[in-house]
Amino acid sequence: MNRAASLFLGIFLTFTFAWVGLVLVPYFQFGRVTDLVSEDTGQTLPPPLSGLAQRGHEVYAAQGCVYCHSQQVRGETQGSDLARGWGARRTVARDYIGERPHFLGTMRTGPDLSNIGRRQSSAEWHHKHLYHPQTVSPGSIMPAFRYLYTLRKIAGEPSADALHLDGADAPPPGWEIVPTPDAKALVAYLLSLDRSYALPEAPTD
């Protein structure tokens, strides 16, 4: 091949073809999906995140949760996600319109979290799990996130949000372990993860 011009043109055109096809067309096809209001409940779907949960979304990104946990439920024909109880329905594009960045994930070293707020709705459970995963999930290989918690001396009354820890994890007498703002935000985000509402394109029955 001695014609540099045709080489450069070919390099340009093959790439443009893929860029238009796999990036621009999907963007114009479904890059502007809007939320909608449920006729039954008057609720906005998907429900917008609270400010605290939005902050928790950032904590989730900073700790790299996405490397072990997916947030996508595949349909019946494509895996056992529904049979495992990871969701009431497959997830669809509309479920993610508020997510920046997206946490779809590619790995399930840990379980899918699309609906973790529904499957584990207790903040106490999530805090214990983050502080020492193996105490509530025996055999888990999730790392502890103790650095999201503070050990501090009880001054006056014990804090309402102090963790109730047993055994070796229990703080010394007169001390307590409390979540940092990051831990509270992260748990608020995890509790917000509930995509069990019905959408026109994804009914739950």
């Binding site: 479904f30 890059g31 999906v33 509309r94 993610y96 319109i97 997510e99 997206h102």
Partner: peptide
């Protein structure tokens, strides 16, 4: 960009 278009 929005939602799952980011994933693509």
């Amino acid at each position: 960009v929005q939602g799952s278009v980011q994933a693509i």
